[in-house]
Design a protein around this nucleic acid. Sequence first.
RNA 1: GCAGGGGUUCCCGAGUGGCCAAAGGGGGCGGGCUGUAAACCCGCUGGCUCAGCCUUCAGAGGUUCGAAUCCUCUCCCCUGCACCA
Length: 382
Amino acid sequence: MDDVALLTRNHVELLPAHGLETKLKLGRPLRVKLGIDVTSPDIHVGRAIPLQRMRAFQDAGHIGVLIVGDYTTRIGDPSGRSAERPILSDAEIDGNAKTYVAQAMQILDPGRTEVRFNGEWLSKLSFADVVRLTRTLTVAQLLERDDFAKRIAAGQPVSVSELLYPLMQAYDSVAVEADVELGGTDQLYNLLAGRTVMEAYGLEPQIVLTTPLLLSWDGAKMSSSLGNNIPLTAAPEEQFGRTMRLPDTMIADWYRLVVEAPVPGGEAMDSKLALARFIVARSHGQDAAAAAEAHFTRVVREGGAPEEVPEGVLPDGDPIHLPALLAVAFGLSTSEARRMIGQGGVKLNGAAVATLDLPRAELDGALVQAGKRRFVRYPPSS
RNA sequence: GCAGGGGUUCCCGAGUGGCCAAAGGGGGCGGGCUGUAAACCCGCUGGCUCAGCCUUCAGAGGUUCGAAUCCUCUCCCCUGCACCA
């Protein structure tokens, strides 16, 4: 029933070498842990990759233990950062935590998922408990971490609280008695610390499995803070469009990591459309995916207006000043609107506009477009 | 604490008294092309009912006809050294 190749598909590191086979021979459902911190409100397609692994384990009869890092987020994970992360407010953290679980369930099997908030145990540790925890690792071990090493070499600050982060995450593994922990490659250090700490607490150390980081259309790691992400909560049209933004050269990678299937072949365009459909369908269902594709075809490929165009209200006065109108309608500055008009990017009922002021009659009942994606309709008065 | 080096428009990064709303790159936006929001090419990229005006170069004052550029003070960052009874 356990196909190791399937469970570990696309992994980067799997440690120790044959540890997973040994665990599987125990003949009981394994507890497969994945910790997520809640610094941003959305899970995106890249962060879904380890969730996909968790799903594979679930489908094979194992238990997914999803740790919501409400408590650790208060410390701030330094992974991949050259600066300390800002500490979020409690309200932000709690708000994010709520939406996270729902998003994760787009990928996971709810019936085989155990959701735990790590504040449950971390908030109860006494100072003596923390000291005991800190005894499990040495400073030298903590400083081995690439990120810390680089920052120290560069003379940048590393706060003591950041050093505690791997320990807290490791303690999660102790608390939930993880058999396997999943994570992106940037989490390798933390995951390995989990092994050491579990051992110190008399537990069988977890198996560590890391997944690749998904690169986005700009070639950088997909990340909410870089704005190159596709959130699982984004609207269907948005998810579809963002996927279509991928350079053709990255399609194969996304098929491997996101769809976990070979590229269908044929035109790059068709593969990319199918990829976009997959991503939307996973979050919003087949119907939404079809609708999003129809929207894309209409608006982007054919340059037409979408099915649903928001309605605007014309201001008073007769010659209507277009820059001001566009500024209100699309949230632009009037200078931006002027530039767009000057570059032929503004259309009135499909025809480019060249004047800044238009008679009210021409706008009444008109469809106004700015660029390819912004539309507003002014319903006829009377 | 002492000595030195820095803080520039979304980001990186030029600019050391007028030619600076400020080079260049990135990003973003617009157009062209295209069975893609890919690739490629061109343009734009502080605000303003805009041939002009207004507000920007960490902050506050000052010198000057004129300051991102000079002076003073303040805040923040970095690099050495010192301190760590």
